[in-house]
Amino acid sequence: MSVIELENVTKIYKLGEVETRALDNVSLTIDEGEFAAIVGPSGSGKTTMLQMMGCLDKPNSGVVKVNGHSVGQLSANRQADLRREEIGFIFQFFALVPVLSAYENVELPLLLNGIAADERKRRARSLLDAVGLADRIHHRPDQLSGGQQQRVAIARALATQPSLVLADEPTANLDTANGQQAMEIMQRLNQETGTAFVFATHDDQVISFARRVIKMRDGRIVDNGR
């Protein structure tokens, strides 16, 4: 069953008089449990594609479906609900809430989803344990290394047990060893939870882990990896 479906999606950005076609009539399907990488040179539309999948932006034309539901007609609030319940995000900058501890960062999406305290505690601890940070749960982001912060972000992305995790250049700010460790963790969690992972990247290390590689150029998919 497909988690995400993009049908003839076009996204145009306007900068003054200049129009940039970031996505040009793109169609793509991501199935449950996939571990896919979207690759291509800078400006090829990878990040825009991820934003469409994550309901962070709306296309100019075409249809985006999450678990079979078309998101085009949804209000901003309903889109927020969908992001909260179905999608996890990992960003290239270590996008943690700076004033919250590692544990609180992982707990936050669970709080927003109205999960009970006991269950929140269990899931947050178990995920932080899974990413190897059981001994760092009370540390704030500024007390953690880059690699550790990204591992907290991975745990947070999986906290609500989403059907899809979107990761935009997740290893871009990590050294090789930390990048390798982050990818290994995500690969393991993909296998254990069945959550689909989609990466936008041009890092060969990430690509080597992907079971499907989708290639983009100039806003178009030149190879959908199947």
């Binding site: 962070l56 927020a80 909260r84 995000f89 996008a95 809430v97 936050l108 927003l112 989803n113």
Partner: peptide
């Protein structure tokens, strides 16, 4: 601003 963006991406609604 970016922090607000992260919270929105996590599913926090405008009114929250």
């Amino acid at each position: 601003t970016r922090e607000m963006g992260i919270l929105a991406a996590l599913g926090m609604k405008g009114r929250q």
